[in-house]
Amino acid sequence: MAGSTEPTPAQAPVTTDRPGLIKAVPVRHPGRWVGIAVVVVLAAMFIHLLVTNKAFEWHFVFEAMNQKPVINGFLKGTLLVTALAMIVGVSGGVLFAVMRLSPNPVLSGVAWLFTWFFRSVPRLVLLTTMGALGILFQKGLSFGVPFDWKIMDWLGLSGDLRFATVNANTVFSGLVGGVIGLGLSEAAYMAEIARAGILSVDPGQTEAAQALGMSRGKVMRRVVLPQAMRVIVPPTGNETIAMLKDTSLLIGLPVITELFYQLQSIGSQYYKTFPIMVAATLYYLAATSVLMVGQYFLERRFGRGFGGGPRRAPKPAGVETI
């Protein structure tokens, strides 16, 4: 009633005096305008720097980005290794997470040991070590019966029980070695992310699935993991972006079919370090932007049944709606 021009009693059935649509003066945000001004000035300064500073040498930047070995290194060493290492990492990580949560102490112990080792070793150290691993297997890597020479000895026979032998260097070095090294390292991190995702699923889901007679594997595959994905996908996007950048460590193996190494070698050839770094930054910015779009769609896919949005919908208090 306060503020009305006529003194009307509360709940008065006078229709003309009932408040209608609200037309209010919005709250002013002068701070925002100040912020916009600051940002505009800073942006102008930055663009001015980009355009006028001779050190950028833009023509050299784009020329370097267009070189065949650079593009090749980007496609193979950066994009392909990222994709394959993440496939190894995600599938390995989910597997190790499931093992870690298994009631079987052997499985969970092995998973713990794997995670401990590969999380402990820095990727550059890991890749460099892998490049040197060939020295352990100078006769090549063989697949066959373990301790076969001993067994043959006991049996009084000669020869071996090996079915296939590969050159250790083809496994541990080159792009294959890069995928294995980065993939295993990633699997250790993904194992922890996947474990968090699996643990985030309401135990009632497992009980409901078990009560329907589903086996442990089916419960995991059909009920728990699809829901865990909702929690697993966002940090996995993060990991993919980190992996994209960590492919620049492939030089440790060494692998030279890789973006950063190729750009750097051009840079040192022409004594132009700075433009080369700009070229590398532009490549990584572009690739990361594409990955972020992909992540958005993945989150939407796995957010089904959770209020539509990719983010966790707030749960109403009290009765659970899931």
Partner: peptide, 9 residues
């Protein structure tokens, strides 16, 4: 179950 436990996905 008391809390239904339908599969939300």
């Amino acid at each position: 179950f008391q809390r239904f436990n339908l599969f939300p996905h």
